[in-house]
Amino acid sequence: MSQEEHFAVRPIAHLARLELSEAQLAEYSVQLDHILGYVAKLDALDVTGVEPLAHPNPVYDVTREDATRPGLTVDLALLNAPRAAQNQFSVPKVVE
C-alpha cells in the first residue's frame, strides 16, 4: 500500500469530475495523506486466502416478475430538472 509523499489530488479530482481551486487541492492533499497514513495500518494484516466481502448478506440474483407497474410520470420525472425541453432533460451540445 505504497503512497506518494503528497497525495496527488488533481488527477483524481478530474476523474471524479470536481473542479477544485488550488487552495482546495493543497488542503485535501495534506488531509488525504493523513487519512491514507491511517488506512495503511491494514498493511499489518495478512489476508492471504481470505475471500473479499462486498455485501453483508449472501443474497444473489434477486429477480421479480417482469411485469409493468406504475412509475413516475414524465412530469414528475422532470420535476427537478435544472433544464428541460420537449419532455426531456436538456444539456449542452454533446456532438459537434
Binding site: M1, S2, V39, L42, L45, V47, V50, E51, P52, L53, A54
Partner: peptide, 13 residues
Amino acid sequence: DAFYLKGQKVRNL
C-alpha cells in the same frame, strides 16, 4: 487491489 480489494478482505475478517 491495494485498497478496495484489501478492504473487502478485512471486512470479511
